[in-house]
Design a protein around this nucleic acid. Structure first.
Lengths: 330, 330
DNA sequence: CTGAAAGCGCTAACAT
DNA sequence: ATGTTAGCGCTTTCAG
């Protein structure tokens, strides 16, 4: 492993000069600069990032902490974060919290111990509630998926309440009356989307059928079980809305198991436009979130803040889109 | 930021003792041990991992380098790697190469500069061909998806050739004769699966229709375009096999665009059992790879090697499973 | 414009 | 059993 001292010796300068050259600092004679660079190339020297980090207290790693690594939403976000990071010379560390506050905290601590430059966090509900912990992290944080104005962080999100309202209203306006809803339990987005859902019912003077409104672990199997219960009710729903694509998959499976037909017997609409939502027949009506944009924006906000910690905080709200397909009979 | 010296002072011992206590080293009196731990708790001391890394030349970060972060296969693998890493106190860094050797090399170099403990790599084809570079990395490497016996690495893989053979034979044995194939270009698995495909045709005395056998970027849009070409041939295929789920999605879209029906007009079979493959109607016949197992095995092999670098290298071959569904009319 | 030297926070010989 | 001390590889004053 060739180190800065080797380069300095070979170039006949001090390590300080090599360091200056590599950091493109001023006050180095052109001739010396070139000589050093030549040696760097020749020896194939690469600075030890760990030593740089320890000495200068700054790293080129950003972290992405998500609640479910297998949710297509976060997959697309990761891709965007990775792209943006790579463009700026950062690499990304990915952590999965499984919506578990203990795991989340342990993960955040570990990241701080590694002195990462900053983190993009999709916080669990509990974390949101004791939000004051985040400043204690003492590093730049961008929060995705959740409004947090009284905090020294940037955030990027969509209007979950409004989006759920639009999706629900769409169903109502096409004649559905007994609309069931399955929302992610313990997740921020789940409860916000529930809120929009309820509001839409209210705005259309529909009395919510509480037995049709459920919270479930945002995964396929729980979506399935919950739906089976709904379908076995005496008066089953004529439509179901879910707060993410994993739940929707479970609903679909349950509907099929029950030999019902979409949209004739029951309609289905969900958040997140996945490939699968398009491929299904009938294709699914969804709220499309700008997932790639969310990830890229978060990464760029974070990198800007790392470069200028005094920058004012900002909140970026991105627009969603209702994509109307055949799963609700339109 | 409280450091080891603060703990030492508060406990009335030297930093060496604190270090010993924290590392659970022997030769520390019980009483001292307890006193130190109490101070650690009280001050909420957490060792700086960067300093530890620099000094002891060992880190608790493992890296996962994949060719396409959005491929469901790697998503499931990531989850497994993340789970295993977390259990052993490691965190994982995720890098995406887009099957681009330049990006891959830059990424690998960066990881070495960060002194990561080891990397799980799904190498690009080019890298495989100039395989000698990997030892130069000078860190433990586990290769997934590719056999590499003359190299000081562990690897975990499936039998791609055999799996493709099984899938192809299944179609042949159900009467399909003009079988098209779309394989990922530039990817290892793509060419191995192509090989198994060709072998199966040969073993069944079917003359391969070369105009039906294509290599494409393993993504939905290229799967679509390639399929449109195949379907517009004078004598179109009666079945199509793809080497991954992204390509299969494209094929499906193209078949639908062409108003053909699966499996009546054309059959379809693919690698990777995704939720979508199950949800579709007709559901898709696939080769199911044990993705979670692959990721977990890779992570465990890596961690074992990190802990014992002298361990002999090994290759783990995991079994795949043919899942027969309705997309090929059985 | 360049070099000498201190030190980031920690671990591991080597003493005692 | 515990303390002293010398670095890990780098950046950054401070002198010159």
């Amino acid at each position: 492993m060739v180190k800065i001292k080797d380069v300095a010796n070979a170039a006949g300068v001090s390590t300080a000069t090599v360091s200056r050259v590599l950091a493109n600092k001023p006050h180095v004679r052109r001739e010396v600069h070139d000589r050093v660079m030549k040696v760097v190339k020749k020896l194939n020297y690469r600075p030890n990032r760990v030593a740089q980090n320890l000495r200068s207290n700054s790293s080129k790693i950003i972290a992405l902490v998500v609640s479910d690594i297998e949710n297509p939403f976060f997959q697309r976000v990761s891709r965007a974060v990775d792209d943006a990071a790579y463009e700026h010379g950062y690499i990304v560390m990915l952590c999965n919290t499984d919506e578990n506050p203990v795991k989340e905290e342990s993960c955040l601590n570990l990241l701080r111990d590694e002195n990462v430059a900053g983190v993009i966090l999709s916080p669990t509900r509990q974390t949101i509630e004791r939000f004051t912990d985040i400043p204690a992290l003492n590093m730049p944080v961008v929060i995705v998926d959740r409004h947090a104005n009284n905090l020294e962080v940037d955030n990027v999100l969509i209007d979950n309440v409004q989006s759920a309202h639009i999706l629900t209203s769409h169903l109502i306006e096409h004649g559905y009356q007994r609309i069931g809803g399955i929302f992610g339990v313990g997740s921020n987005t789940g409860s916000l989307r529930h809120e929009g859902f309820m509001q839409a019912l209210k705005d259309h003077n529909i009395k919510p059928a509480t037995e049709l409104i459920k919270f479930a672990n945002p995964r396929e199997d729980d979506g399935f079980k919950t739906t089976m219960n709904l379908l076995n009710l005496e008066s089953r729903p004529d439509a179901i809305i879910t707060s993410n694509s994993l739940l929707a998959a479970g609903v679909l499976l349950a509907i099929r198991e029950s030999k019902l037909t979409i949209p004739k017997d029951i309609a289905l609409a969900s958040f997140d436009d996945t490939t699968c939502a398009q491929l299904l027949e009938p294709a699914m009506t969804v709220i499309d979130q700008p997932t790639y944009e969310i990830g890229r924006t978060a990464a760029e906000l974070l990198i800007k803040r790392i470069q200028d910690p005094t920058r004012s905080n900002r909140e970026v709200v991105l627009k969603t889109k209702l994509i109307i397909r055949q799963s609700c009979g339109c």
